[in-house]
Design a protein around this nucleic acid. Sequence first.
DNA 1: TTGTACGCGTTATCAA
DNA 2: TTGATAACGCGTACAA
Lengths: 337, 337
Amino acid sequence: MRKAATIRDVAARAGVSVSVVSRVLNGTGPVAPAKRVQVLDAIEALAFRPRAAARQLSQGHSDTIGLLLADLTNPFFARLADRVVAEARSRDLQILLMTTQEDPHLEGQALDTLLDRSVGGMIGTPTGHNVERWEKLSALDIPVVFVDRSIAELDQVDVVSIENIDSAATATRHLLDRGHTRIGIISGPLDTTTGVERVQGYEQALRERGVARDDRLVRPAPFRGDHGADVVAQMLALPEPPTGLVVANTAQVRVVLRMLSQARVEIPDDLSVVVFDDNPWTELIRPPLTAVRQPIDMLALHSVELVHARMRQKLPPAPRRVRVPAEFLERASTARR
Amino acid sequence: MRKAATIRDVAARAGVSVSVVSRVLNGTGPVAPAKRVQVLDAIEALAFRPRAAARQLSQGHSDTIGLLLADLTNPFFARLADRVVAEARSRDLQILLMTTQEDPHLEGQALDTLLDRSVGGMIGTPTGHNVERWEKLSALDIPVVFVDRSIAELDQVDVVSIENIDSAATATRHLLDRGHTRIGIISGPLDTTTGVERVQGYEQALRERGVARDDRLVRPAPFRGDHGADVVAQMLALPEPPTGLVVANTAQVRVVLRMLSQARVEIPDDLSVVVFDDNPWTELIRPPLTAVRQPIDMLALHSVELVHARMRQKLPPAPRRVRVPAEFLERASTARR
DNA sequence: TTGTACGCGTTATCAA
DNA sequence: TTGATAACGCGTACAA
């Protein structure tokens, strides 16, 4: 195969200069109607496509946005990726995908790679570390949008997430309403915003009803690994075990359910369970799980829209915090006490 | 923030020429030890990172590989993406992600985007259409590796997949061994290689045991939508309904199980079920599902390794067909008839 | 072992 | 309305 056509080839064939071709390509500047068709014909004939690299080098920025997610094994992030890709395409944006596996070291490497400016913007779920590099991205005028989680210190960064506090409060109230007072919560790590906010919501609901908080029932678990199972096991071994449980750590839902099943804990008879978040497999589990469903398409839509707007500098500099409500789905894993 | 450093800034600061810097950067050619440290120091001090676009423009190819998957909503593809990203990183390759949503039109657009040569290689699950564009990629010397599925006409393209025929035969024999003779199969569309090959394996197993094939029990279903449920419902409404079922269409497993549950079909008492493929949620379903587990890490490893080798022209031109065996997991969704 | 100068493909500036 | 030409940042012959 011979080499692909360049803008010069097109110009030659159309009998015009490269500038004219560039102008019809980008609609930037005047072109005589007659010449325009000649150029278009030449482009067609030579199957010319502008090289992204050359364009990027010339203008300094790219139409590629980096998507840095924790882990595609988690259906929540997988579905988020799916929607982000779709939203990006509809705006002619490309997605460069990386994962952190919740490992700050890997996250750091990924950010370094992105820092070479090959991306025009970033969407990511930060591990909570690498604050300097996230800052540097912003400092380099690369728009950053945090999705799902954020980093408290970085209050200049745009954030798109669900109403974590409200959602956790709703889930907790649902259990309180059904007569439960010993309610456990497995959250994400307390150095993540989702972790702390969901615990806040839980505490708020308890406070409303005058139920005392028991430290032994409020337990964070790492996103990776099977630690969530141990934590729940410990709760259940308490002298006064919980009768209700909120699994607010999306990544640990599966692990916790497996442990419960192995330990022959009957749901909801022995234990009422609410989980974050809902995924298509949730309804196949017996009993179908009461869940907080995150509006993933909204999260994706706003994230992409936000970086896109920033990339075109269509937005005032003030950081945006988009919080979308989550839906509460009552199914069969929760019952009256 | 002032502009990022270029290779010239580094050269100036280190008191050498750009070529020296380039050489220490790429290890291409000799550099005096003393100057090397000066350069390294300058790079450090200026936080210099070579611009990917400039490098790509200069050398003509990129370290980015396009990953074109059907749909990240399907846990199989999601986990595949997760592993591909990991394998790519360990080789300093970037992943540009796109999805087809099983739509040939979207696939075509995605391929056009990739055709502008911004990618150095491609890994994808083709829909079966857009043959010309896949061909053109190869013709442009962009290495292409099909994973999971392939396109029969494109026999010059590398393929990495599981042993589809064997796997389906094993699944079918498992049911035959347990006394089932009325065995249904839901496959993928018959214009996909996974669809036809798995049906072939099914037929082969039946033939071995002298069981006649019944057309009404061999039904393809599209990957998207809920059509698989209808097809199974039709099978079960037959005068002589099947007592065993192979769900060979990964994307329809969930849909089929939901329908079975709603129709109050008892598994395995009324119907023994084997599914492609195993995902972490499968074991939480009651009863735990007998499944064909695809070695996703192997699929990812070989795919990335293959494109990478081709990108460095480390391989003889003959197309490679890597077929990895799948694991058969007997759980509780299959029983003697 | 080092440095100069040019090419990669596109956009942008500016004079015609 | 058009066309030369200078960036953009890096790799690399080729000359020194």
